[in-house]
């Protein structure tokens, strides 16, 4: 690990002040960053520990939730209002990592997880534009079973690893940020970016900008939601594909639906095309399959990951089918 200095921030202003110099990284639970530092993929000169910043889980006046960035993943999954009102988020959290890691990992840090592309991690032997911009991508023509089928670029075919973020994408969450320039709020869909020519940039955060909270808008009382993850083993593995879905029915018609896919792109993939096709129509397997076909019309599978198109389609059919079949 490259030497660094460590400082613990007492509050967001303190964190911004401590992070004013170049080469600073914020430290949450460390479950990804410490590993990246050990592999010398991340080499910050200074860590500012924001894992102890104040911030709880509070119900907002509108009936939504405000989640402090330092809240642990396990605490969020256990929260009564997450379990009762936002099962899609609770299930996504519980599908991620292991209990030990969920106890450590912060919500803010979860948003800033980096890809688990094996070529990104292989700093000794592989080319990776995300790790070393301009060096090339060994995943494009390599073992790319786990890689992206949507929104990739010749420079990068990595996927975003988070489960929680897929749920937040479907929930129309917003992210509250603070920097020396002041506070701002970003729609969740605009936090992460597609790789394009700059896969070294995962998000739209400015240097030194701090995530302070995530806000969830209220869900209609009739909304049903869930998260389904498909992986190579039953537990403790990253997603091949996953689906976060929120649906409201009006009789046997879909009044509203929100869908996000994980494991298919460089960011959680909000399926706007599929949603538009499904709204107002029947929630039949045929209709859901047609909506998925439209969403994946532009899919560009690589040598090893063509199966993801059909897998994601079937997972969507099964997930919405479960929600429609559920009695509550």
């Amino acid at each position: 690990m490259t030497p660094f200095t460590y400082a613990r921030a007492a509050d967001p202003d303190d964190a911004l002040r401590l992070a004013a110099r170049d080469g600073t990284a914020y430290l949450g639970g460390g479950t990804n960053l410490v590993d990246l530092m050990r592999e010398t993929i991340a080499q910050p000169a200074r860590l500012v520990d924001v894992s102890g910043l104040p911030g709880a889980i509070e119900e907002t006046d509108e009936g939504g939730l405000l989640i402090g960035a330092a809240v642990r993943n396990s605490a969020l999954a256990e929260h009564r209002l997450v379990r009762t009102r936002y099962p899609v988020l609770g299930r996504a959290l519980l599908a991620g990592a292991s209990a030990q890691i969920r106890n450590m990992a912060t919500v803010g840090g979860n948003l800033l997880q980096r890809t688990r592309c094996a070529y990104f991690y292989d700093s000794d032997g592989s080319r990776c534009n995300k790790r070393a911009p301009g060096s090339g991508c060994d995943a494009v023509a390599g073992f790319n079973r786990n890689h992206a089928i949507l929104g990739a670029s010749p420079a990068c075919v990595a996927t975003h690893p988070s489960d929680m973020c897929v749920a937040l994408a479907a929930l129309d969450a917003t992210v509250q940020l603070q920097s020396a320039q002041g506070a701002r709020t970003l729609p969740f869909a605009e936090l992460h970016r597609l790789p394009g020519e700059h896969p070294e940039r995962d998000t739209m955060l400015a240097p030194g900008e701090l995530i302070t909270a995530i806000a969830l808008p209220p869900l209609p009382a009739a909304a049903r939601s869930t998260y389904r993850k498909v992986r190579d083993r039953a537990s403790y593995a990253f997603a091949l594909v996953s689906v976060a879905a929120v649906i409201e029915l009006d009789g046997d018609r879909i009044a509203d639906v929100r869908i996000a896919f994980g494991g298919v792109a460089h960011k959680p993939w909000r399926a706007a095309r599929a949603e538009a096709l499904l709204r107002g129509g029947p929630a039949t397997p045929a209709a859901i399959r047609a909506a998925a076909a439209a969403e994946f019309a532009d899919a560009a599978p690589l040598r090893d990951n063509g199966f993801k198109v059909e897998l994601a389609t079937r997972t969507l059919v099964a997930t919405l089918g479960d929600l429609v079949g559920a009695t509550a």
């Binding site: 460590y6 410490v34 894992s51 396990s74 030990q100 450590m104």
Partner: peptide, 13 residues
């Protein structure tokens, strides 16, 4: 009382 992974934990934290 909470289980964590000590390999990913910086002691100073």
């Amino acid at each position: 009382g909470e289980r964590i992974l000590s390999c990913l934990a910086l002691a100073v934290q």
